[in-house]
């Protein structure tokens, strides 16, 4: 492929795209829509699994200790639990601390809260236990619950499981929708290229009689498919890129507790991936049409 041929091919490509402008636009738009959905799905899934992960990390067991337990017994209990398998850390939260924290959330001071509660601290001492692995949480919680000094345990199991199941479902649905649109896009591009080949079959015949090889005749059509896919992919990358930034900005200013993934490398990879996928769809579409054509 020489420079001269390249120039010829580019000229031909532009020519043929002008021939069927509506079909070209439809092809570009289907590529775009499928890739926009793909792009947002990828970002959504990345965030969902990130969220699941961060909740897992935060997953801790709160063990409420019997009222009769003394401070030294509490410390002994802490050491004992620390020695149990699968425990990452154990911290003591005294009932005074709990009361203070509670008071802060209510917007008062410790003393007047205590007064409001009738002079008696209703809370009990707590131990906050982190497991080394989220999988161990249930077993660990049961083990801690079995200790005589502990009268109740609480942990956030259940929520994480539901989140994981939800993302799994989402992954399948997203995949299905993306696949449907991707197939539609490939089919449209292939129709586009096929129509161009058909409307130019006489020209192609002449070219081949004058000694043009199959690949020489094929290139402009292949490039055309690639270009359609490229434009669709580029549009999708822009939409997904700007859309994600916009959503991330708004989520972060309103729902501050949600951890939004802001990974620049990942971001660029996804956008470049969309572009390449678009071109791949274009190449596939034109490849399908050209395979059957252009036999002498």
């Amino acid at each position: 492929m020489t420079l001269n041929s390249t120039r010829y091919i580019l000229r031909e490509t532009i020519h043929s795209m002008k021939r069927n402008p509506w079909l070209s636009i439809a092809s570009v738009l289907t590529v775009m829509v499928s890739l926009v959905i793909l792009g947002f799905s990828v970002f959504f899934l990345v965030n969902a699994s990130n969220m699941a992960k961060s909740f897992e990390d935060q997953l801790e067991i709160a063990a409420f200790v019997e009222e009769s337990t003394t401070k030294s017994e509490l410390q002994a209990l802490q050491t004992h639990i620390k020695g149990m398998p699968g425990v990452a850390s154990v911290t003591i939260v005294t009932k005074e601390q709990v009361l203070t924290d509670f008071g802060k959330t209510m917007g008062g001071t410790e003393n007047n809260i205590l007064a409001d509660l009738g002079g008696k601290n209703p809370f009990s001492d707590e131990l906050t236990i982190k497991a080394t692995d989220a999988q161990n949480v249930i077993a660990l919680a049961d083990a801690v619950d079995a200790l005589p000094e502990v009268y109740k345990v609480r942990y956030g199991q259940g929520f994480v499981d539901k989140l994981l199941v939800f993302t799994q479902w989402l992954r399948w649905i997203g995949l299905g929708v993306v696949a449907a649109f991707a197939i539609a896009a490939v089919v449209l591009i292939s129709i586009n290229v096929k129509m161009n080949v058909f409307s130019r079959r006489r020209e192609i015949q002449i070219m081949k009689l004058v000694g043009a090889s199959n690949s020489f005749v094929r290139w402009p059509f292949l490039i055309e498919g690639l270009a359609l896919g490229f434009v669709g992919g580029a549009l999708a990358a822009v939409i997904v890129g700007m859309g994600y930034n916009w959503i991330a900005m708004n989520v972060q200013s309103t729902l501050t507790f949600l951890p939004i993934v802001q990974n620049v490398t990942l971001f660029q990879q996804v956008l470049v991936g969309l572009l390449l996928t678009g071109m791949g769809m274009g190449a596939l579409g034109s490849g399908i049409s050209l395979q059957k054509f252009l036999k002498t």
């Binding site: 020209e203 002449i206 070219m207 081949k208 009689l209 004058v210 000694g211 043009a212 090889s213 199959n214 020489f216 002498t296």
Partner: peptide, 18 residues
């Protein structure tokens, strides 16, 4: 076939111009 055709000049009865 293309290489064969490049060694042959053809003046077509119906011209076959693009």
């Amino acid at each position: 076939v293309p290489y064969l055709r490049r060694t042959i000049g053809v003046i077509f009865q119906d011209f076959k111009l693009l």
